[in-house]
């Protein structure tokens, strides 16, 4: 695998330990580093499989009606109480059976996707923006700004993630998706901030940043043209991998009864455990959906990391 993923001239040099067997510029067009990463990704089956899965999950999340005609909240206790799955009825409301409230397990697994993806995506976005900004300021300016921001980061880092989220969410009576995102972001941004800070510190000492300063470039130009594009790669990797983690966290919170109101895999797993002896399928299918989703994002993160930093392998 490693030799298959090396593309750019620099990577060739890594392969040949003698040093720079740098090719002279070829009679081909410009190749940016982002372009090289993209070329790497396109040839990587892990990336292809995981992004196809994620694409499918996104379609499910936004158009659940396409996959299930039944509503996740429709209950008919009398008719459907713990009714066993009819595996012949593929995609039907009774395909994966009914839960103790007479709701379609299949419909709930489909409709739970949106909540999970929105919490995962929203939290990742918020965490990246907040953590990235804090890390960039701390790393670039250093001195007392760094001292203050880093201590704040440490303080938040010290709060146990799930415990903190539980305490926070417990104080809300109504737990909508934005509230859950807020709670997870509040506790989750520290890792991104630390990664960003380290990355910025490495980049800011590079000669091209010095060169921009020597030309008289403004601070904002240096930050956004030189530092950010070169420091962002590890943050992207952390973001893709942690997206899966946030989805898992949402499920955990829901399982503990502190998560979302409404359809969510965590809620369903929580409900299902009461019937685990008589009807294990109620818990099984949301769990499978959850595992596939988390796995898909972690695989994507892995592939992105290899593409952005081939030296790590």
């Amino acid at each position: 695998m490693p030799e298959l993923t090396t593309t750019s001239a620099e990577k060739t040099a890594t392969a040949a330990p003698d040093g720079q067997s740098l090719p002279d510029p070829k009679p081909e067009k410009a190749r940016s580093l982002w372009g090289d990463a993209w070329r790497d990704l396109r040839g990587n089956w892990i990336f292809i499989v995981s992004s196809l899965l994620i694409l499918l999950l996104l379609v499910i999340a936004f158009f659940p009606g396409l996959f299930s005609s039944a509503s996740p909240d429709a209950k008919d206790l009398a008719a459907h109480y713990l009714k066993k799955p009819e595996y012949g009825h593929v995609f039907g409301a009774d395909w994966l059976g009914y839960d103790a409230q007479g709701r379609s397990v299949y419909a709930r697994a489909i409709y739970g996707t949106r909540a999970s993806l929105m919490v995962g995506g929203g939290t990742t976005l918020a965490v990246t923006v907040l953590g990235g900004l804090m890390g960039m300021l701390a790393g670039y300016f250093g001195g007392w700004i760094d001292a203050v921001l880093s201590r704040i980061t440490d303080m938040f880092f010290g709060i146990p993630f799930l415990l903190g989220a539980m305490v926070m969410l417990n104080s809300f009576t109504e737990r909508s998706i934005p509230i859950v995102i807020l709670a997870l972001t509040f506790l989750g941004w520290t890792q991104t901030a630390r990664v960003m800070r380290g990355s910025v510190i490495t980049v800011k000492s590079q000669d091209y940043v010095q060169a921009a300063k020597a030309l008289g470039a403004s601070t904002s130009r240096i930050l956004f043209r030189h530092v950010l594009p070169n420091a962002i790669a590890p943050v992207i990797v952390v973001a893709t991998i942690s997206l899966g983690v946030y989805i898992g966290a949402e499920a955990t919170l829901s399982y503990l009864g502190l998560g979302l109101d409404g359809a969510s895999w965590g809620n369903d797993i929580s409900d299902g455990q009461n019937q685990i002896r008589v009807a294990a399928y109620i818990m099984l299918y949301p769990s499978i959906m959850l595992s596939i989703t988390v796995l898909a994002f972690i695989m994507l993160g892995e592939a992105v990391r290899n593409a952005l930093d081939p030296k790590q392998r």
Binding site: E3, L4, T5, T6, T7, K11, T12, A15, A16, D18, S21, P23
Partner: peptide, 11 residues
Amino acid sequence: EFHTRDGVVRA
């Protein structure tokens, strides 16, 4: 030789 994605580097 080194086998890379860009081809064989005959070092």
